[in-house]
């Protein structure tokens, strides 16, 4: 768990980050979202003291970092740099092995761990193990950067735009792979991005920043449906509808969906945990015309296009 209290960092007396506080529970993902230059990287670096805050305090697992040596807790905190920064004179394997070596793991264990990570991140253990970073593509380097951060199984992971150098297709596929890694399951993660889609996809909490301050923090729905200011709604305006569809579960609409339907045929069954967006996709791509949704209590509802839209509108009205 990470608790940050009133962090401030000044550059030439101008605050790059001012008075930021948040708490991330164990296993939660927090996304720092905001435009370029708003202080995301600065905030992230202050968490493991790469940048020393001018004021404020950071607690990792309830211990103030002021009471620990930075070298010690940095080894337990995986860090992915915005500009990757692999060590050019180390092989890929040596890059991945940096922290385990500092921790004094034995050679066999390190080797096994390297091979395992290469495999998981879709790099080739044969081809890539002992070559140098400059021999890799940008996207491959980024994955090695991730592997390096994950190698010593840290409980905390700080990632600064870890998918930045990737085209949308590769990015989507890697993100999917990565989200499924055990490695990510119960880690406390802070992820920096300026990509709104990515923020909603990966964040349990989203922290929207502007000019060094947190404008709003909360779960994705709160930001979408209860924007704290015009800045927040303005930030999502372009993709508002898409985001709303993507971030509303059928469960939320369940009340307003009809229990019967005139033509009960051409059915497809979906779980109430699925998002509205996926429901639409199923209707479109599977060539079906009616969804059947069963909740845990065994109740059953039916929905076509029109019913979904109607339920969604009603739902929005109730929370507004």
């Amino acid at each position: 768990m990470i608790r940050v209290e009133k962090l401030t960092k000044l550059y030439n007396k101008i605050p790059a980050v001012s008075d930021i506080s948040f708490t991330i529970k164990k296993g939660q993902n927090m996304v720092l979202l905001g435009t370029s230059g708003c202080g995301k990287t600065t905030t992230l670096k202050m968490i493991n003291d790469l940048i020393h805050p001018d004021s404020g305090e950071v607690w990792l697992d309830e211990v103030s970092t002021r009471k620990m040596k930075p070298e010690v807790y940095r080894k337990k905190t995986g860090y992915v740099l915005q500009n990757i920064a692999l060590f050019p004179h180390f092989t890929i394997a040596e890059n991945i092995a940096v922290v385990p070596r500092l921790l004094g793991w034995d050679k066999d264990k390190i080797r096994r761990r390297c091979l395992e990570l290469l495999e998981k991140l879709h790099l080739s253990p044969d081809k890539h193990y002992s070559i140098y970073p400059h021999q890799l593509s940008g996207g491959q380097q980024q994955r090695v950067g991730l592997a390096r951060a994950l190698a010593a199984e840290p409980s905390i992971l700080l990632m600064d735009e870890p998918f930045g150098a990737l085209d949308p297709i590769t990015r989507a596929s890697i993100k999917k792979d990565i989200a499924q890694l055990d490695e990510f399951k119960d880690k406390t993660i802070v992820l920096v991005t300026h990509d709104v889609q990515e923020a909603f996809e990966l964040g349990d909490i989203i922290c929207l920043m502007d000019k060094g301050e947190i404008i709003q923090q909360g779960n994705p729905e709160e930001l979408l449906f209860k924007p704290a200011s015009a800045f927040v709604s303005g930030f999502f305006k372009e993709q508002q509808l898409l985001l709303e569809y993507q971030n509303t579960t059928l469960h939320k609409l369940f009340r307003w969906l009809p229990e019967t339907h005139t033509f009960v045929q051409n059915l497809i069954s979906v779980s109430p945990d699925e998002k509205l967006w996926q429901a639409f996709e199923k209707l479109n791509t599977a060539g079906k015309s009616l969804l059947v949704i069963k909740d845990s209590g065994g109740r059953q509802k039916y929905a076509d296009h029109g019913a979904l839209l109607h339920a969604f509108t009603t739902y929005k009205n109730t929370i507004a």
């Binding site: 940095r74 740099l81 500009n83 920064a85």
Partner: peptide, 11 residues
């Protein structure tokens, strides 16, 4: 950045 990465890894 390389130096910063080294520090970030806990050196």
């Amino acid at each position: 950045n390389i130096r910063e990465a080294a520090v970030a890894m806990g050196m």
